[in-house]
């Protein structure tokens, strides 16, 4: 049997300090320290607060991952780290730590793209990725449709949000409804007791004219405004706001557009596998709707379990292991952190 690479991955693109360890496609450890509670009172991630938290959490999280995996650091074959995209100051802490590990261990370093890592993580749960496959990545920071021919080099963007990310819309609507940050899980929960067809919220970039130019792109800013208008009108008239119905109808509008465009993209490319990743992939309605509609088209859906959908170090390690397995050239020690790393640059 060939030696499967043992890789440690570091992820600090937003508010989670993630350190994961994998051997090939096997997950050994996924340690995450989150500063989300420090951000909650600000209603969103504060970059400087996140960067400070990464510095404090870094070494303890590396230590915890090694303990969980039951490995010694010197046994690691390579270090992988999110080079971008993400918050500049936050990324920099992870990249510097990864370089220190690479230097201290005398091992190669791979600076990788966060979005491709969201795709690669599914291998830890469902085995080798079918290639090509179509990836729908939805989170507080991204909403993209990607055509994946080789997760280490061939990532082609088909569509992306032109304004807010899907997860951002969840956060903003949650705030309107008086639900806590981060909004996703709270909307999901409220929506379970609501009527998803109670209010007909708009589907962004879905008119015939929009589809000509933005067939696979998303827009959630108009939806967010529509929800705000609807809620304000209710408040003005002195009537109570039916939080559960608003949550359910809003969620339905988001999921409807995401699933419809993802399946349209897959069909147009003759791709039979759809992978959904990112924090919003944990949304129960999105998973159910995607599976139901995809099965009618003969498209298979892969969604990693929620813990692997949100940002974590295991996804970076998974992509790093793939880089090693496919013989990609490691990054140089002057590897930058690039907050706006293009999705097509999988390895820096």
């Amino acid at each position: 049997m060939k030696h499967e690479p043992l890789v440690l991955g570091i992820e600090t693109s937003c508010d989670e300090t993630g350190v994961g360890i994998v051997r090939g496609h096997t997950l050994l450890a996924d340690a995450v320290a989150s500063s989300v509670e420090e951000h909650a009172r600000f209603g969103g991630v504060v970059p400087e607060v996140a960067s400070r938290a990464h510095l404090e959490a870094m070494v303890p999280t590396i230590e915890r991952a090694c303990d969980t995996a039951g490995i010694a650091l010197r046994d690691v074959d390579a270090i992988a780290v999110t080079s971008g995209p993400g918050l500049a100051g936050a990324l920099l802490v992870g990249v510097a730590a990864a370089k220190a590990l690479a230097l201290g261990l005398g091992k190669p370093i791979y600076g990788v793209n966060h979005l491709a890592a969201h795709v690669a993580v599914d291998q830890l749960e469902h085995g080798p990725l079918p290639e090509p496959c179509l990836a729908l990545l939805v989170s507080g920071g991204h909403s993209s449709l990607l055509r994946i021919t080789d997760v280490t080099v061939g990532v082609d963007p088909m569509g992306a949000t032109i304004d807010d990310a899907a997860g951002e819309a969840f956060d903003k609507v949650a705030r309107l409804l008086g639900l806590p940050f981060p909004g996703g899980p709270h909307i999901d929960r409220a929506a379970r007791d609501g009527d998803s067809v109670a209010i007909d919220f708009p589907r962004g970039l879905s008119s015939r004219r929009d589809l000509e130019r933005h067939r696979f792109d998303f827009s959630f800013s108009g939806l967010k405004t529509a929800v705000a208008r609807w809620v304000e009108a209710r408040e003005r008239s002195g009537e109570p706001v039916p939080v559960n119905d608003v949550a359910a109808s809003f969620q339905e509008a988001v999921c409807d557009v995401l699933v419809r465009k993802a399946l349209d993209a897959a069909s147009s490319e003759g791709i039979e596998d759809l992978l959904i990743g990112g924090g919003v992939a944990a949304n129960s309605r999105l998973r159910a709707m995607a599976e139901e509609r995809a099965s009618r088209l003969g498209i298979r859906v892969r969604v990693p379990r929620p813990g692997l959908c949100t940002d974590n170090g295991a996804m970076v390690a998974a992509l790093g292991a793939e880089m090693v397995a496919r013989g990609r050239t490691p990054s140089a020690l002057d590897l930058p952190a690039d907050s706006s790393l293009p999705v097509t640059t999988v390895l820096v």
Binding site: S51, V59, G89, L92, V93, A96, A97, L101, G104
Partner: peptide, 19 residues
């Protein structure tokens, strides 16, 4: 400046931990 400062500190702590 915080950004540069953290690069030095996380490098020192991580190298110290590994070695």
């Amino acid at each position: 400046p915080f950004t540069g400062l953290r690069v030095g500190l996380v490098t020192a702590r991580t190298l110290g931990f590994v070695l």
